[in-house]
Design a protein around this nucleic acid. Sequence first.
DNA 1: AAGTGGTCTAGACCACTAT
DNA 2: TAGTGGTCTAGACCACTTT
Lengths: 255, 255
Amino acid sequence: MFADIEFLNAAERDQIDKASYQPAYLQLANLLKQKIAAGVYRPGDQLPSESELRVQYTISQMTVRRAIGLLQEQGVVDTSQGKGSFVKPLKIEMFSFQLDVLQRVFADKKRTEIKLLEVDLVYPDPDTMKKLAVAADDRVVYLRRLILRDTRPVLLHRETLIYDPCRPLVESEMAVTSLDGLFSGNGHTDFKKGEMTLFTTTVSEEESGLLQIPANSAVFRFEHVFYDFNDTAVTFGQFLCGSDAITFYTKVGLW
Amino acid sequence: MFADIEFLNAAERDQIDKASYQPAYLQLANLLKQKIAAGVYRPGDQLPSESELRVQYTISQMTVRRAIGLLQEQGVVDTSQGKGSFVKPLKIEMFSFQLDVLQRVFADKKRTEIKLLEVDLVYPDPDTMKKLAVAADDRVVYLRRLILRDTRPVLLHRETLIYDPCRPLVESEMAVTSLDGLFSGNGHTDFKKGEMTLFTTTVSEEESGLLQIPANSAVFRFEHVFYDFNDTAVTFGQFLCGSDAITFYTKVGLW
DNA sequence: AAGTGGTCTAGACCACTAT
DNA sequence: TAGTGGTCTAGACCACTTT
């Protein structure tokens, strides 16, 4: 009986094992999460106070705070000064769709191919003029790329860059530039900030041909602008992709 | 000259003001972010070590760590043990679209109306059977709601709930139940976890009529499943909304 | 006034990475 | 071995909320 207890881990004994490879704050965070998942503390309930936890688990306040801080980051509890920490009920706003799925498409380069459809030095349209803050007689670089995965087209990228006379338009480079940095694991971008807006649209006839999907299909349209460290907008463009090609999935709460 | 210095804030003097209402860790985090934004530290560069910062700003290591921890959360730096903290280049995966925009639609109830289109006690279709883990002869509650903002339809919600004989189908309640908790500021849900998948589709004729958008328009489709504290799937459904009705926008990097 | 969270320190010790 | 981050403590003091 007693021998068994020694084999029980911290979670099962509701204690913190200071000899464990897992830090104390993590153990406590997990203990609390388990209790919430088990319904010991229900949404809206107050957790034991920091000093209670400090005493109960014989750890310092800083360690308790760190555990609770973790739960806050994870959206599990909500803390307010002078009141306490409370189990947070699920809310729709907790959901968020990460764009790392897009990155994963690019992760293994063996399966992914970037095909440059078009490079042009053109005059900007009104929308581009506004987004990139260029004049009507400033020329810009217009690119179209098709990104294929296992030879199947998944993304259509249109991009307009401000034209830098110092950097000539080498086609081989153009296939990748800016995409590479943003997507690949090691690639560097020297962007300071970027913004993105998500729309849905139906594809034109040409787009449906390129993406090999039925005409008038609904697709995602990710419109983006990136800025360099002078706060100059340097690239403006959009990705098109069907929701068959890429799935956006998220979960919240305690799994 | 010297008098002026007293009016400079911590940021301008590159020092930490311990008398400030702003905690030291926040001041340091902001100082570092400013230096990164200014190009003092560029993407890929290593930040000064914790002990350097500790000495330079005469604060304790814990406080330094907390500042750097903040930058990590914000995706500004990347830290690895034994090596150091490095300025993180922008990556596509940093973008995430939050669903709080949906919540904001519901925030001021004066402008938002929920219209119950349909309530039915039905037998589940195969998809619902799978998602809610019910048998073909278990009856489920099928709901359709239209959510209007300023009398304009923005969301079409279809939802299937497991039928709980204890909770009779009161129509007035059905208009809100589960929606209310998920969306409203104070509402409670007793969901333990939930998952959501984002698609795009074109609307059917009926849907286009309800949402008052052109036939075959492209819309977002948010498919969701929520689970109670017994890990039972209790509701499965989907929101439809056009990208005109709701805009999804995110930014990353240093603004 | 009592109870809650929030900040901060000085110093100890551990773990990982370079060299 | 030296330098980096990572964990933890004991205790001080502050700020907010409740009664």
